[in-house]
């Protein structure tokens, strides 16, 4: 349980970081907060020969307004910074709240939003929020900059669209529509400070009782965080009565591929997703909880 020797590169620019990653090949890793990477190194799951830090690249932790009314959040902004920024609280309270639910205070103040996403953990708290918000991921690699919709970013069990020597530089988070109702439900039945068994992000825009926009995404249930597209379809354009909400909950339970682990069985996860989609949507429809 000791860190093996490695080379540490403190990058001054994103291009420096990309070059250092290319130079290191398969044995190079990006480090920012280190809250996921360092424990994996201590357990010898990963043994990188080179760590390329992007934590001190000027501007990479910035949180700035976008002209569209949304936000641009730098990849190395910490969960603490995101959850406390007035700008985020005003323009994207769902994301601010999800970041406030990450792990424990120590992890929140060291771990970064970009690191959280690049780790590819299914039970990520910000991931479902960003999926529900339809954020865009900005990456920078040897071929220059590119963008990936976050809905295409998570590709499998601890796998992402991040390519070799790429760095997540920022996220574009669209503004939440005026009057949007939202909730992030982090359900941890075992202990409060645990990974989400169901981490459900929801945003609804209603016209009276009719649902104009439904955005639902969940972490912790399957191999990676996912949008609950069929549940969204079941709600959009519909009156939010009990039967519609139940149909959406069933659709959500039907479209996920849950996994067994020590926290709970796949079947239990599926059943609990059904319960929480029903409760969260019903709550938002009634104007409770946001």
């Amino acid at each position: 349980m000791i860190l093996r020797p490695f080379e540490y590169v403190e990058s001054q620019t994103v291009d420096d970081a990309v070059a250092a990653l290319r130079g290191g090949g398969d044995d190079a890793r990006v480090i920012a907060g280190g809250t996921a990477l360092v424990p994996l190194m201590k357990h010898a799951v990963l043994r990188p020969a080179r760590l390329v830090s992007i934590a001190r690249v000027p501007g990479l932790a910035d949180i700035a307004p976008a002209t569209s009314g949304g936000l641009r959040i730098g990849g190395v902004a910490t969960h603490w910074a995101v959850s406390h920024a007035t700008l985020v609280r005003e323009r994207s309270p769902l994301l601010a709240y999800a970041c406030a639910r990450v792990a424990s205070p120590t992890v929140r103040s060291m771990g970064t939003l970009g690191g959280n996403l690049c780790y590819g953990e299914s039970a990520s708290d910000p991931a479902p929020a960003l999926l529900a918000l339809r954020a865009t991921v900005r990456l920078h690699g040897p071929g220059g900059a590119r963008t990936v919709p976050i809905t295409e970013f998570f590709t499998g069990f601890y796998e992402t669209a991040l390519q070799e020597a790429e760095v997540l530089t920022s996220l574009d988070v669209p503004a939440m529509p005026a009057g949007a109702r939202w909730r992030y439900l982090k359900w941890t039945p075992r202990a409060q400070e645990d990974k989400a068994l169901v981490g459900l992000a929801a945003m609804l825009v209603l016209d009276g009782h009719r649902c104009r926009v439904a955005r639902l995404a969940v972490g912790g249930v399957g191999a990676s965080p996912v949008v609950l597209a069929r549940a969204e379809q079941a709600l959009e354009g519909q009156e939010l009565d009990e039967a519609t909400i139940a149909r959406a909950a069933d659709a959500a339970a039907g479209e996920v591929e849950p996994m067994d682990d020590l926290q709970g069985s796949a079947e239990y996860r599926r059943d609990m997703l059904r319960v929480w989609v029903r409760r969260v949507v019903a709550g938002l429809a009634e104007g409770r909880a946001s």
Binding site: A191, Q192, E193, L262
Partner: peptide
């Protein structure tokens, strides 16, 4: 993966 109660529990 092994949880013990923390203050919030």
């Amino acid at each position: 993966d092994y949880k013990i109660p923390t203050t919030v529990d």
